[in-house]
Design a binder for these strands. Structure first.
Lengths: 251, 251
DNA sequence: CCCAGTAGTGTACATCTTACACTAATTACC
DNA sequence: GGTAATTAGTGTAAGATGTACACTACTGGG
């Protein structure tokens, strides 16, 4: 076994990309690093995995330790292992991501993190290590996820309006033209996933909107069956020539 | 930096899941391990990552060294890091997968691998380490991939018949009832991805089928645009009650 | 020449997608 | 109290796509 010893000299970490939705913006939770390397820079909440803990366990623990978030469902996205991504040596990191309702959680940064704060996705330009690349990869995963699962469940407060839900989809999918209001509502309502609460907004300076909540049971039924939750832009881009005849999905 | 030394004691490997299609069967390339642990067992071709090489590079190198396959496009799938998955210590493995035309490559097992052989997916029951779990994860990825990309490209010989292509799809998607021949052809042909070679099979004891090849340029155009290549079974299963009204895809 | 075996083809109906514009309810302000 | 501002809410028609379904066309072998 001696011949293998040279291989047992690397370290690995987990990095968590936590998405939230608030005030019409899609946000990501970042910490300000309190130790080197990259002390003082914004980074994803991530840290070393203990030798005796599984990856998923480590991701949860690290998230809790750095931000105080607990009981968050984390999903593995991809592993980043460029040779020089960490100045201390060979460090591979496994990226996890999650969606949460910002209002459900309170953030308590630890000593390693000077602060933890939600940042609007669009404004995040530079992060420590290769964390911007990791964030981008997770954002792409989210875009994919939103088409195959009713993500609103995880991101919106218990009661919400259809317009809020639509804004969420627009924030994630970033369609140039936004989504068509009537088509969006038709589609969402036809899925029978929403419960009409027969209540309306209060304190808004315009016609108040009806409030809805997700039907958790239906949601789980649908998840079990697996389904397709595609959303398309309200205004079609010009189709490239060859598309006019070509079809893009299979019977 | 001393405080971190305890973390730099793990190792990581890559494991490759290479799918091929041959004689109507979907196959996976396995090696018979020539060294401990699990000497003599079938396993995925995988090995340690060098300290100074990137993950993708390592996956390619390891595949080459163990099986003689080169110039294979490998895609990262997921990382497996259960604490006790390797008897020598903490070893995390990054799983890669690929699709190749079996006939395009010759296999040359190295000393580490006693042999390398294609195995029909359905018959693979037990593998070294947690490799069965890794294989299953990659197979799921393949099922997903087949719906979003014309994978026939990667798996079939340059000239093929529509029936062969259909069998490939059926092998991957494993629909209970097979796919409807007319609908399959209609769909495939309407994508303008195939070039009709105006040739037919020879030496078959029945009406010979036309031969086609993939149109590489069109394929790349389509890839760049991103498209949806869904296939459905020819016979619908009974719909669960709530589906009768609910729709499963979004406008 | 006929049998066995696979290749190849079209249509009608149902469902889903898309584009599109006006009325309704509320508050703020004058 | 009227009106302006602002967002909520609603339906329909045309086109594209998906699905079910059964027969004829070639070829080699006997």
């Amino acid at each position: 076994m001696n011949e293998f010893n040279e291989y047992f000299k690397s370290a690995f970490t987990v990095d968590n990309v936590i998405f939230g939705f608030d005030e019409g913006d899609l946000k990501v939770l970042l910490i300000k690093r309190g130790e080197d390397p990259h002390k003082g820079k914004w980074a994803l909440p991530g840290y070393f995995v203990y030798p005796n803990e599984d990856l998923d366990t480590a991701a949860k623990r690290v998230l809790d330790e750095l931000t105080g978030l607990r009981n968050v469902y984390l999903e593995q996205v991809r592993t980043f292992g460029a040779v020089n991504r960490h100045p201390f040596g060979r460090v591979i990191t496994v990226a996890y991501f999650s969606l949460i309702k910002i209002s459900d959680y309170t953030i308590q940064p630890s000593s390693i993190a000077q602060k933890a704060k939600w940042h609007a996705i669009a404004k995040v330009k530079e992060l420590a290590f290769d964390h911007k690349e990791i964030l981008d990869a997770c954002f792409n995963r989210l875009k994919w996820l939103v088409r195959s699962r009713p993500v609103g469940f995880e991101l919106l407060p218990p009661k919400f309006t259809l317009t809020e839900l639509q804004h969420l989809y627009e924030a994630i999918l970033e369609p140039e033209a936004g989504l068509d209001k009537r088509n969006f509502r038709k589609k969402i309502l036809s899925m029978n996933l929403l419960i009409d609460l027969d209540e309306t907004q209060e304190g808004v300076a315009h016609r108040p909107a009806r409030l809805y909540q997700f039907d958790k049971d239906k949601y789980e039924e649908f998840l079990a069956e697996g389904f397709n939750f595609e959303l398309k832009e309200s205004k079609k881009k010009e189709k490239p020539e060859h598309r006019k005849k070509a079809r893009h999905s299979f019977p």
